[in-house]
Design a binder for these strands. Structure first.
Lengths: 203, 203
DNA sequence: GACGGAGTAGAATGATCGTTCTACTCTCTT
DNA sequence: AAGAGAGTAGAACGATCATTCTACTCCGTC
């Protein structure tokens, strides 16, 4: 009697979790973790508070899972963008073309995992960020191996520095050519690796 | 009569602002901006709330000023660490030796400005972060010029990518050799710049 | 057709947020 | 000597925080 004619706003159970995670991912990427309150997540996802806490024990767990999903989605996008190019040097170039596209998007706000790791010192969120960077490095390693790079593992760690550095320069420094700069250095990297395999002295 | 014998806990006016900024800088570097409440700043600095709001209109202004001071201190440390080495390639090496030292410190928590920029989307805090990266790039440019690099400005933007990338790999990825990797790439960078000044095709 | 699980709406909790205010004390200046 | 300015301590404000709870509705299944 208190609510005479309630509309049927109830969502299908299967969609609740998905929408919850999608909205959470978007909000924390746009505004940061701490700045995103549960009220906002409730309002924009249309999922009731009670339902959220049925799926996730705490906000931290929700955020960690949303980031894990972003890891999945971002890596899928990145890999498929790179694999439009054939293996070898063209695919290496495609890495930075994909980054350049990403940087120029309107809603580009840096790397969600770098941002998250900068906001929380330790805990599951930081672990997800570290896992993402490891997965990215592993993929870079496979691309470098296709280029015939000796010691692709080492070169992948180098390449990851170039990728992350480009992200920071694009986001914080506003460098619109960051991806191109990183691409040029990556080119030098694989060229040197192929020409002379091991020159003992570093720098 | 309500406070019969209050101890003389009053600080010298000159020291209040300095201590306030020092404590704020430390807290936001360690725990992030949003996670650091004014209560904590009050407690750890010993500065009364009223006094804080005499110096700064809002928390945001306090944080921005604390970051501006960190910019000053960090750059002074960095430049003086680099200038223990003579100009030219040795000083370029010293850049990454300084970074390696920094990364291995117990309280290393990444770059305060990258962290801050990742936490807030826009506003004065983000501006301070961008200004810091510009100042760092300008110094890198001067070091590269001393190395005889043609187009030091472009190379400085490249070098900044290496520096920031190394910071991220060290902090997020836990790569303990990030500084050494970046140093090797920086070496390749200046070598290529010096040998062949302009090869038209990029990558 | 009744029941239980999972959904919604939204009030309520206690804590903490940034900010303001009152009351008092110290110190310098005139 | 007195007053002004700047400090401290800490209560108080309203807003918002994450989390819990009550009350109700839908839907699939015995």
């Amino acid at each position: 009697m208190t609510t005479p004619s309630r509309q049927s706003t109830k969502q299908r159970p299967a969609t609740v979790r998905a929408k919850l995670l999608a909205v959470t991912e978007r909000l924390i990427y746009t505004g940061g973790i701490h700045a995103t309150g549960m009220d906002r997540i409730v309002r924009e996802s249309g999922v009731a508070r009670k339902s959220i806490y049925r799926y996730f024990p705490t906000k931290e767990a929700l955020v960690a899972e949303a980031l894990r999903e972003r890891d999945e989605r971002w890596m899928n996008w990145f890999v498929s963008a790179c694999e439009t190019a054939p293996p070898g040097p063209p695919r290496l170039r495609a890495i930075f073309e994909a980054l350049a596209d990403w940087f120029s998007q309107d809603d580009f706000n840096g790397c969600a995992f770098i941002n998250a790791a900068g906001e929380v010192a330790a805990g599951p969120v930081h672990d997800v960020a570290r896992a993402h960077k490891r997965r990215l490095r592993d993929y870079l390693c496979s691309v470098l191996a296709e280029c015939g790079v000796t010691d692709a593992a080492t070169a992948a760690a180098d390449l990851l520095i170039l990728v992350d550095g480009a992200i920071i320069s694009a986001r914080v420094g506003g460098d619109s050519r960051a991806a191109q700069r990183a691409a040029r250095m990556a080119h030098q990297l694989v060229r040197d690796q192929n020409v002379s395999s091991t020159t003992g002295d570093s720098l």
